Amino acid sequence: MLDFRSDTVTKPCNRMRKLMAEAPVGDDVYQDDPSVNDLEAWAADRHGFEAALFTASGTQANLLAILSHCERGDEYLCGQQAHNYKYEAGGAAVLGSVQPQPIENDKNGTLPFDKLAAAIKPEDLHFARTKLLSLENTIGGKVLPLEYLAKARQFVDQHNLLLHLDGARAYNAAVELRVDITEISKHFDSMTICLSKGLGAPVGSLLLGDTAFIARARRLRKMVGGGMRQAGILAVAGKMALTENVDRLAEDHSNARYLSEQLGAIPGFNTFIYPVQTNLVYADVADHIDIKAIANQLKEEGILFSPAHKCMRLVTHKDISREDIDTFLQRVESLVG
């Protein structure tokens, strides 16, 4: 099966499965799981934070972050295209009574500081209290520049806000920028890292912050049903992902650029209006091409992708090779022709 739908579809390799089978475990709700404790302590130190929390998913980690930073009746600023605003079922509003205030992202994924400043509510009983700015890196495959992150830190300090990073693909950003992850993490009060996307673990995300923040998040994790028991089976996979699967993300980025260039050479596919920075490829497909029929045919052949005429997304990851991309391209071209 060749699956271009997302980097969430990666499978654990044999070495990772062996580590999982042999993982020392305990009850993590009691904080007795040695593998979870090791991952959390290591991750906190590695990324420059006081503490870390292993969570079931990036959605859960973002929810815990927003609810730990904000109280009922507060609001957080974020992008109109932010995952924790658009794709996480309104969790902060539904479960925490925290109001999102979305700002339209610029084309490069950043949020303009003048619009952010205008959205901050004054100290007045009529308004929600603005407490937090949430950024996402990467966002739509775009990498936020380091100088922008530094300015964001200055902005929140100036306006007495907290700064959170949805870092689901933060390591893709670090690899593309050719910097250590701490050059990104150092700007933030809290940060999430997804272990089950390009890094290749089967389950889990990390939430990072100071000790008091993580203590609040741990209680909230229990509240939303995220207290896992012998979770060390998953934690060892997460640590392997962080220690052994980072550098290879550059291969995904190279494969994505190749896929974009070659797909864009097929008549009816326009990829050149969507420059590739990391592992996400986008294409506009001409109306005369029955892209859904092509997707259905390729599914029968064991090739999966999500069809769309506007901004169709394909994702490269560790289970997609250059040869797999060529197979996909050859079949698409033959069906278009």
Results as ranks from 00 to 15, higher is better:
I184T: 11
G264Q: 05
M312I: 09
L314F: 10
Q330Y: 11
E50L: 05
Q230E: 14
D124R: 15
K222S: 09
E136K: 01
G198F: 03
A89W: 14
G232Y: 09
A56M: 08
L207T: 00
Q99V: 15
L263K: 05
A293V: 09
T211C: 06
A82C: 12
F188I: 07
R331G: 03
S185H: 03
T278L: 00
R15S: 06
I66N: 02
K115W: 06
V236M: 02
A173W: 04
K299M: 14
V285I: 15
F305Y: 10
A41L: 13
N296P: 08
N105I: 02
P275L: 01
I120E: 03
P145F: 06
S68E: 04
H288C: 06
H83F: 12
E147S: 15
N160I: 09
S196G: 00
H317F: 06
N270E: 05
K318M: 12
T10P: 06
G79N: 07
N137R: 01
I266W: 10
G225D: 04
R248V: 13
P122W: 08
V9I: 11
E104S: 12
A150G: 12
E136N: 04
K151T: 13
T271C: 08
V276C: 07
P102R: 03
L208S: 00
L249F: 08
V179I: 15
D247A: 15
K222Y: 10
P202N: 02
D210I: 03
A256R: 00
R129H: 11
P267I: 08
R216P: 09
L67A: 06
A283K: 00
A295H: 09
A170K: 00
E300M: 13
I291T: 07
G79L: 00
F4E: 02
V29R: 13
L162G: 10
G140S: 00
E50N: 09
T278N: 00
K11E: 14
S321P: 11
N84G: 01
K310Q: 14
F54K: 01
G26I: 09
A212M: 07
L177S: 02
H317P: 12
P122I: 06
S35W: 05
E22L: 15
G58R: 01
N245I: 01
A293G: 14
L298K: 10
I103W: 13
L116N: 09
K186W: 07
Q330V: 04
E323A: 15
D28G: 01
C78Y: 03
Q330W: 11
G209E: 04
S57K: 03
A235H: 07
D324F: 11
R153S: 12
D45C: 10
G140M: 01
K239I: 07
N172M: 02
Y148L: 03
L207W: 04
D106M: 13
D210K: 06
D189P: 10
L63D: 01
D319V: 04
Y87P: 00
A212G: 03
A128R: 12
D166C: 09
R248M: 12
V98P: 05
G91W: 12
R313K: 11
D33Q: 03
L116P: 11
D252H: 15
L144S: 00
K151V: 07
D290F: 13
K142V: 04
R5M: 05
L165K: 00
M1G: 13
D7Y: 05
G48Q: 11
V36F: 10
V246H: 04
I233R: 14
K121W: 05
